[in-house]
Amino acid sequence: MIAGLLATLAGSAWARAALRYGVIALAILLFLLALRRSGERAGRLAEQLETTERSHDAQRRMLDAAARRPRSRDDLAERLRDGRF
């Protein structure tokens, strides 16, 4: 029954044009949805990259501070006497 209805509609020039425009509209809709999804994904990845960079920067600053710390109590006392702390 459905095959007969499709055959009848496919025989009509108006139905073929409507079907063609429907397929084109569906393709455009699917393309826009895929574009939106990839944009959202790119935004999430950019946000994750920014967060990671901030975290790495904080870790780098902590490591730099640890590298400059006094090695012993004597070094600390010497720095305090010299006013370099």
Rank of each mutant, 00 (worst) to 15 (best):
I2P: 04
I2Y: 10
I2M: 11
I2Q: 11
A3D: 12
G4R: 13
G4V: 05
L6G: 06
L6K: 04
A7T: 10
A7Q: 14
A7H: 12
T8L: 15
L9C: 10
L9W: 10
A10Q: 07
A10I: 02
A10N: 08
G11W: 07
G11R: 07
S12E: 08
S12M: 07
S12W: 07
A13R: 13
A13N: 09
A13H: 08
W14P: 00
W14L: 14
W14V: 15
A15F: 11
A15P: 00
A15N: 06
R16I: 08
R16W: 07
A18Y: 04
L19F: 14
L19D: 10
L19W: 14
L19Y: 13
R20W: 12
Y21G: 09
Y21E: 13
G22P: 00
G22Q: 03
G22V: 02
V23T: 04
V23L: 15
I24G: 00
L26Y: 08
L26N: 05
A27K: 03
I28D: 06
I28R: 07
L29H: 08
L30P: 02
F31N: 03
L32S: 11
L32D: 03
L32N: 08
L33W: 05
A34H: 02
L35K: 10
L35A: 15
R36Y: 13
R36L: 15
R36G: 14
G39S: 09
G39W: 02
G39F: 07
R41N: 04
R41D: 06
A42N: 03
A42F: 01
G43R: 05
G43K: 01
R44Q: 09
R44C: 01
R44V: 00
L45P: 02
L45A: 03
A46V: 03
E47S: 12
Q48Y: 01
L49D: 01
E50D: 08
E50V: 01
T51F: 03
R54H: 09
R54P: 01
S55E: 15
S55C: 02
H56W: 13
H56S: 13
H56T: 12
D57S: 14
A58M: 05
A58F: 00
Q59S: 13
R60E: 10
R60G: 03
R60T: 11
R61K: 11
M62A: 15
M62N: 11
M62H: 11
M62S: 12
M62T: 08
L63V: 07
L63A: 13
D64K: 10
D64V: 12
A65G: 09
A66F: 05
A66D: 09
A67V: 12
R68C: 05
R68T: 11
R68L: 15
R69M: 14
P70Y: 02
P70E: 06
P70R: 04
P70M: 00
P70S: 00
R71K: 14
R73V: 13
D74W: 06
L76I: 04
A77K: 11
A77E: 15
A77C: 04
R79Q: 15
L80F: 03
R81H: 12
D82I: 12
G83Q: 08
R84V: 11
F85C: 07
F85Q: 07
